[in-house]
């Protein structure tokens, strides 16, 4: 394949990564934005989502679409509830003290991960996509007869991957409306602005925190349900999304939702593109170092304003 079509393919793969990453990172960003909590266990909520998707699909049998739709509803509910419980019984008890919260969520990370290892096992398990038609993609080339449309061999994407991109956009738009238009969203934003004043005005801050923590985890779970037909469920799969989400949240400017989405697109696309053109290990090294350098030299994030 020539460079042009190759780049287009890489961009499409990148867009899928970006879509999943945007969902997962949004979850982390909301939790950080509203609660100022650094949740190291976020990647494990993602992993749990994937494992639940596999579990629902394998219990139901029948057409993969039934299990998929059910998982899309159940996984975020179960994971969100679990997270809200963890918030209520662990994080609230330590008053969200920054250092202790980090320690506690590292602990949660291992508890969730190792419990999954004990029950789900160490194997990677696939989940059937609900539909998976291969769509060939055209490419335009300037030849003897002016522009011509050609169909390069290998330039294609599955319908499911396109669906992931559309689904992510839909969910994020829905979340946006929820945060800006609904009463619950208003309570969240009030808490984010100033939790003490919000409390004084009768906002049930503790309950808002539990909901936010659950919502953040639920978003990660949705991302995982969407990705699992492409990637397989595995008990260690939470590590990469955790790291990438953190990068996205920091580069986007801590707690800023538009920044998070832009950074997710940036990181997801470049991750996809770099890994098509380089050996995966080298690509990861380069990507990791580049992002680390961005963090080092623009610690306020790409969209954040520098002081003074």
């Amino acid at each position: 394949m020539e460079f042009g079509p190759h780049l287009m393919l890489a961009s499409l793969e990148g867009a899928v990564t970006a879509a999943i990453l945007a969902l997962t990172a949004m979850g982390l960003s909301i939790v950080f934005g509203v609660m100022r909590v650094v949740n190291i266990a976020h990647g494990e909520f993602f992993m749990l989502g994937a494992v639940i998707a596999w579990w629902v699909a394998s219990l139901l049998g029948g057409h993969p679409a039934i299990g998929f739709v059910l998982a899309l509803v159940l996984a975020p509910l179960i994971v969100g509830t679990l997270a809200a419980v963890a918030d209520r019984f662990i994080l609230q008890r330590i008053n969200y003290d920054p250092d202790r919260t980090i320690v506690a969520t590292i602990g949660l990370l291992y508890i969730i991960q190792q419990t999954t290892l004990m029950t789900f096992g160490p194997e990677a398990r696939p989940v059937q996509p609900p539909f998976n038609t291969r769509l060939a993609l055209p490419w335009f080339e300037y030849g003897e007869n002016g522009f011509a449309m050609i169909w390069p061999w290998g330039l294609s994407i599955t319908s499911y991957k396109l669906f992931v991109i559309v689904a992510a956009i839909t969910i994020i738009t829905g979340l946006w409306l929820f945060l800006t238009r609904s009463k619950a969203g208003l309570l969240m934003r009030a808490t984010q602005q100033d939790s003490e004043t919000a409390q004084a005005f009768g906002v049930p801050v503790q309950r808002v925190y539990s909901w936010v923590f659950g919502l953040g985890a639920g978003l990660a779970a949705i991302g995982a349900v969407l990705v699992v037909p492409i990637q397989q469920a595995h008990y260690l799969m939470g590590q990469d999304p955790l790291l990438l989400s953190f990068i996205v949240v920091i580069i986007g400017g801590l707690g800023s939702l538009p920044g998070t989405i832009i950074a997710a697109i940036l990181i997801g696309m470049s991750d996809g593109i770099i890994s098509v053109f380089f050996s995966p290990t080298l690509a990861k090294i380069i990507a990791t170092l580049v992002v680390a350098m961005v963090l080092v030299f623009r610690p306020q994030g790409l969209l954040g304003k520098s002081e003074g």
């Binding site: 330590i94 202790r100 506690a104 602990g107 291992y110 508890i111 969730i112 991960q113 190792q114």
Partner: peptide
């Protein structure tokens, strides 16, 4: 007892954060 021995580490961390920071 189990191959998931890091579970102990996880429980220890949560308990430490809660009761003996």
């Amino acid at each position: 007892i189990t191959s998931a021995y890091m579970l102990i580490a996880g429980v220890a961390l949560v308990l430490l954060a809660m009761f003996a920071p």
